Simulated assay, not measured.
Amino acid sequence: MTARPADLLIDRPAVTDGASLWRLAKDSKTLDLNSSYSYLLWCRDFAGTSAVARGADGEPVGFVTGYVRPDRPGTLLVWQVAVDSAHRGLGIAAALLDGLTARLTAERGITRVETTITPGNTASERLFTSFAARHGADLAREVLFPADLFPDGPHDPEVLYRIGPLTPTNAH
Results as ranks from 00 to 15, higher is better:
44 R>T: 01
160 L>N: 04
147 A>D: 13
157 P>F: 02
82 A>I: 02
74 G>V: 06
6 A>H: 02
57 D>A: 10
109 G>Y: 03
131 F>R: 00
93 A>G: 14
108 R>F: 14
167 T>P: 10
147 A>W: 01
116 T>G: 08
67 Y>R: 11
23 R>Q: 12
66 G>L: 07
26 K>W: 04
113 V>R: 00
73 P>E: 14
73 P>G: 10
5 P>S: 11
21 L>T: 08
140 A>Y: 08
121 N>T: 04
41 L>Y: 01
149 L>N: 11
1 M>T: 07
10 I>F: 06
152 D>L: 08
40 L>C: 04
171 A>L: 13
15 V>A: 13
79 W>L: 05
162 R>L: 14
36 S>Q: 14
32 D>Y: 07
98 D>E: 14
134 R>E: 15
79 W>T: 05
82 A>Y: 03
92 I>G: 12
15 V>G: 06
55 G>P: 04
136 G>K: 06
145 F>V: 12
106 A>S: 11
16 T>H: 05
8 L>R: 06
32 D>G: 09
149 L>D: 15
98 D>M: 11
165 P>Y: 01
95 A>P: 05
85 S>R: 00
126 R>P: 15
19 A>P: 10
169 T>Q: 15
168 P>G: 03
117 I>L: 08
86 A>H: 10
113 V>K: 00
79 W>D: 12
91 G>A: 11
160 L>R: 09
11 D>W: 00
53 A>M: 04
166 L>C: 10
170 N>S: 13
154 P>M: 07
57 D>Q: 09
108 R>A: 15
70 P>M: 04
